[in-house]
Write a protein that binds this DNA or RNA. Sequence first.
DNA 1: AACGTCAATACCTTCAGGGTATGGTGTCGG
DNA 2: CCGACACCATACCCTGAAGGTATTGACGTT
Lengths: 316, 316
Amino acid sequence: MDLRHLRYFIAVAEEENIGRAAARLHISQPPLTRQIQQLEDELGVRLFTRTPKGMELTQAGELFLAEARNIRAVVEQATERAQRAGQGKLGRLDVAIFGSAILDAIPKLLLTFRKAYPDVKIVLHTMTKAEQIEALRQRRITVGFNRMLAPQPDLATELVATEPLLLAINENHPLARETNIPFRMLAEHPMVLFPTGARPSFIDKVMGLCQEAGFVPKVSQEVGDAVTGVALVASGFGICLVPESVTTLTLPGVVFRPLQDAPAQAWVDLSCIYRADDQSPILAAFLETARLFRQHKQNEDGAIIATGTESWVADI
Amino acid sequence: MDLRHLRYFIAVAEEENIGRAAARLHISQPPLTRQIQQLEDELGVRLFTRTPKGMELTQAGELFLAEARNIRAVVEQATERAQRAGQGKLGRLDVAIFGSAILDAIPKLLLTFRKAYPDVKIVLHTMTKAEQIEALRQRRITVGFNRMLAPQPDLATELVATEPLLLAINENHPLARETNIPFRMLAEHPMVLFPTGARPSFIDKVMGLCQEAGFVPKVSQEVGDAVTGVALVASGFGICLVPESVTTLTLPGVVFRPLQDAPAQAWVDLSCIYRADDQSPILAAFLETARLFRQHKQNEDGAIIATGTESWVADI
DNA sequence: AACGTCAATACCTTCAGGGTATGGTGTCGG
DNA sequence: CCGACACCATACCCTGAAGGTATTGACGTT
C-alpha cells in the first residue's frame, strides 16, 4: 500500500464517483479504477459497493476513510515538523552555564532566543568550564557559556558580550571614599580572587592586568565564584575585581566602583563555546541570535555605561 | 513522499549504515542511497549526517524517525481494522426488536453474536413491525426481529426460532384443572388476542388455527402485546394463546398449559428481516450466527420440551 | 429501442525504482 | 607513507508499474 492509494481512495470516497475523482486528481478514470481495485485486493476488503450511480462506501470503507484521513494528517504533520526542526525552529537546546553567569547577559540572550524560537526547548545545565568542554565532546550539551576560553581544536567559540571590570569594595573600606579609583591604587589592598579551578581563568586576567600596571596584587583569598567573592567583600575580606554584570547582585555593605586609568584590557569577555563540527540548525539559529544580541547590546552600551555611572554617583 | 521512503528511512536510521539497511530491505545499496536523498530533498531537511562510519541522524532526523514509526504503526492498525471490518468483526449493528421479543430467544442470540464478534457494537431499537420495515428501507437499522412477516420485494427474512403455542390461563379458570387441553375446548372460552396493529400478525395465526379446528374464538379483548395479554389473563379477562417464550414472564395467578391435538401449525415463527441488497459483512456474520443458533436450539428442543413438561407438572 | 452514465477492460507508453559497476573519501594497520 | 578497507555517491542500464487512449459492459432513463 502506498500513500497514493490513500489519496486516491479519499478522493473517490468523497466524490462517490470515479470519473469525478479522477478529474480532481488530474488523472484519467481507468488508472484510478485500477488503483482502487489494487487497494481493495491488498486489504482483502471491499471498500466500495459499485452502484449504477457510482461508488458507495461499505462499512469497512467508511471506517477506512476515517483512518486514511487520519494518516494523511499525521504524515502532513510529520513533514511539517521535520521541516521546522531542520530550520532550527523545533527541538531541544542543551545549554551549560557557570555559577554566576545567570546574573545578566545570558538570561536575556536565552529569553531573546526563546522568543524567536518558541518551540525549541531550552535545557539549562550548571557546569564548570572543564565540565562544559567534556560535555560538549560527549554531545551532552550543545553550547556552553564561559569566560576566558582557551582555544580547543574541536571546539569553536563565539563572543557574546564584553563587560568592563568594576571594583567591589566594602562600604567601610578606605577606597570606598573615592569615586574614581586609579588602577594602581589596587596594589596596596588585599584582593579576593576567583574562580579556583581550571586555568586559564578570570584570575589570570586580573593577574595580567596588575602585572601590566606594574604591581603584583596581594591575594587575600581565592574563592570558587563571583558570588562568593562578593560575599567575602561584604564581610571585609578585601577588594575584588568583578565583571560588570555581577552588580545585579546586591549584598549589604558592598559598593561597586569604576576604575580610572584602567588598561585597555580591563574588559572581560563572555563567550559561548560549541562543537566546531556541529551542523545543527538549532545551534546555528542560536549563534545567529547571539550575534544579533551582541550587536544590539553594543549599540546600547553608551546608554548602559551612562546610567551605570549615575548609579555609582547615587551610591556615594 | 511514499510509505516506502519511510520504511527505508527507518531501516537506515536503525542500522546507521546504508549497506546493512539495504541488505535488510533486500535491495542493493545505491537505490537506497537515492531514496534517502529523495526523501531529504522532498522534506528540504537533512535527516542524516554522513560520517566515515556511516549515517548518523540529525536532530530533525531523530524527530522524523519517531514520526515515521508512528505513521507505520497507524497504517498497520488502519489496514488491520479495515480487514476486521470487512470480515464483520468490527463495526456496528443496529437491531430492532418488538415489545415482548426480549423475553427469550433474541437476547440469547444477541449474546452469542456478541461473544463471537466482541468488537461489533450492537444497538437495540424497539420498533413495531411497520416501523422496522420503514427503518430498514431508510437504512436506520440493519436487521429487525418479528413474527408473521409478510414477504416484501426488497427485504429478506431468516427464520430464527419456532416456538410451540401455549395457553395462558388464570389458575382459577376451569381449564386450569386440566393438564392437557384439547384445542377445541378453547372455543367455549373468551380469549385475549394480540397484537393490535399491522397485519398480518399473531392474531391472524390464532384465528387461522381456530378456523382450522372448526370454531370461531370468542374475543374477550384485543391488546397491544403479549405482556399486556398475560396481565389480562392474570386479572381474569380470559385465556390467551402465547408463544412458548412468554413463559419466562411469570405473573401471579397465571399458569401455562400445553395444547393437545393442536394443529401442526400451532407453532409460531420468530424471524429476522433485513435488506435483500445488504452485503454488509456484519449482517452476513449475524445471519450466520442466527443460523447456527437455530440449529443448536433445534438439537436441544427435545430436552427443552421435556423440562418444559416437567415444569407444567410442577405447576399443577 | 436509443441514449446517457457509470465502472471495467485491453493495450500502449513512459518514467521511477532497482540492479551492476565504479568513483571518491576518510580510517586504520603495517 | 601507502595500500587495504569500509563507507556513501554517481553513472548508466533495465524492468515493471502507473498513467493514457479507446472500447466494452452494465444499468437506468426517456
